[in-house]
């Protein structure tokens, strides 16, 4: 840009001849009907873009289909548990469903958070930038101008909200199914104590929020992958493969030292919410891992996207 600067200073007569305020003339210029755009708050403009993003995400048939599948699975789990009944060999959480329908929520989330929820989040996150690039819409968003950092931030918030909604859909479907198929009452926790139903619902909220935080971290990872390619399906596949690979690493006993660093190890670590009082130590650690993944992946995404040549 230095050449531009120097050349500009090389034409002093023009500079002197012009009015001091360069926009005064052009605004008053004959026939140029260009109003000075009103200064609107950047936060409001970002919210507007986010709203547009959310509308696209939640109206897209593919995403709606994924949410429907996520709602059906807890119902199926509930029916299976109801039909098979609690046999003593199943894990403790699952046997408890027979005793209290509320427990179905925890069962459903701890099962789905391992693969089906990550899959849905990976689709939305992997598609975020790569999908716009492959469709050519990225160039029009950027010349609008959406701003690269702003667009990336909005995309991340959108993915995080989608993850939250997906977790809520699972929790709600499980809650309704549990209430319909099983007796509901005061909840007996893993620690053996019994809490009132309202308190139990609060625990459901905590677990849902924790799961959503884990999905947001995955969303940041998917978004970073999405900035590396113009092929959305490639970004989605890469994200899912990373999840599966990480889970494989997570079950190999010899790799125990590595496991605390894996994102997948922490997704279902919300047992603490089922104890009395709530055991926050493990969950706090989990949230810190999620935050670390979000920051690192977010930085990679920004570093890659902010200066890149858009050739699509």
């Amino acid at each position: 840009m230095s050449t531009v600067r120097s050349a500009e200073t090389a034409t002093p007569p023009d500079v002197l001849a012009r009015p001091a305020e360069p926009h005064a003339e052009q605004a008053a210029g004959p026939g140029v009907a260009v109003a000075v755009p009103p200064r609107r708050g950047p936060a409001r403009a970002a919210l507007r873009l986010l709203r547009s993003e959310l509308t696209l995400t939640f109206r897209r048939p593919r995403n709606i289909a994924m949410l429907i599948v996520l709602a059906i699975v807890p119902v199926l789990i509930g029916i299976v548990l109801r039909v098979v009944g609690g046999d003593g060999e199943a894990p403790s959480l699952i046997t408890q469903v027979a005793g209290n329908g509320l427990m179905l929520t925890f069962v459903a989330l701890s099962l789905l958070v391992q693969l089906l929820l990550p899959l849905a989040v990976a689709v939305v996150a992997g598609d975020a930038i790569a999908g716009e690039a492959s469709g050519g819409t990225l160039r029009y968003l950027l010349t609008a101008p959406a701003g690269r950092t702003r667009l990336l931030a909005v995309k991340f918030v959108n993915v995080a909200i989608f993850g939250l909604v997906a977790c809520m859909v699972v929790a709600l479907a499980a809650l309704v199914t549990g209430f319909v198929l099983f007796p509901v009452g005061p909840v007996t926790l893993l620690s053996g104590t019994t809490i009132p139903l309202a308190d139990g619902l609060l625990r459901v909220l905590i677990v849902t929020g924790y799961s959503a935080a884990g999905m947001a971290a995955l969303g940041a990872f998917g978004l970073a992958v999405s900035t590396l390619t113009e092929v959305p399906i490639g970004a989605v596949a890469a994200t899912v493969v990373a999840v599966v690979f990480s889970q494989v690493l997570g079950v190999i006993p010899q790799l125990a030292p590595v496991q605390p660093y894996l994102l997948t190890s922490w997704w279902a670590s919300f047992d603490g919410a089922l104890r009395d009082p709530v055991a926050t130590d493990v969950m706090t650690q989990g949230l810190l891992v999620f935050a670390a993944y979000t920051v690192v992946c977010g930085s990679i995404a920004w570093g890659r996207f902010s200066g890149r040549d858009i050739t699509s």
Partner: peptide
């Protein structure tokens, strides 16, 4: 380049939303 599943009008609204001004 537009979103195939949106109407023409919705597509223009989408690009307009991306312009902070």
């Amino acid at each position: 380049a537009f979103y195939p599943y949106l109407s023409g009008e919705a597509n223009l609204r989408r690009y307009d939303a991306a312009d902070p001004a």
